[in-house]
């Protein structure tokens, strides 16, 4: 491979990494507050967590998602702060099917810390 082609290839890879990183980062937003309610979603096998202040709302969290100290999700009563990605549903068993429950703003990712 010529030096010119190698340079172009390296620059292209760097640009692709940069584009992926920026687009990936842009999907993450901040959430934070005290978990006031934690409900297991029987169809989607995740949890619907309700937070109160400073950022009110509901988010879903999947068991097994890594978390940092003190790894207290999804326990009710803990303080949590982190990043979430848009999208995500809590589905509950309803008759023979499943139906959405709650109104989650997104799905909590692995960048989250909690109180003990």
């Amino acid at each position: 491979m010529s030096r010119k082609k190698l340079t172009i290839a390296i620059i292209s890879i760097l640009i692709l990494i940069g584009v992926w990183y920026v687009t990936h980062a842009q999907t993450s937003s901040v959430f934070g507050g005290y978990i006031t309610n934690s409900v297991y979603c029987t169809c989607s096998n995740n949890f619907l967590l309700t937070f109160s202040g400073p950022i009110d709302g509901q988010w879903v969290w999947y068991p097994g998602t890594p978390q940092y100290d003190h790894q207290s999700l999804p326990r009710s009563g803990v303080w949590a702060l982190g990043l979430y990605d848009a999208g995500g549903q809590c589905l509950m068993t309803s008759g023979k099917g499943c139906s959405p429950f709650g109104n989650p703003k997104g799905t909590i990712g692995p960048t989250v810390g909690t109180s003990l």
Partner: peptide, 20 residues
């Protein structure tokens, strides 16, 4: 700790105005 990492990030643009 990770909680404090997140504190450092979040506080400037989301929580500063929270009064409670």
């Amino acid at each position: 700790s990770s909680s404090d990492i997140l504190d450092e990030i979040v506080v400037p643009h989301v929580l500063h105005e929270y009064k409670d």
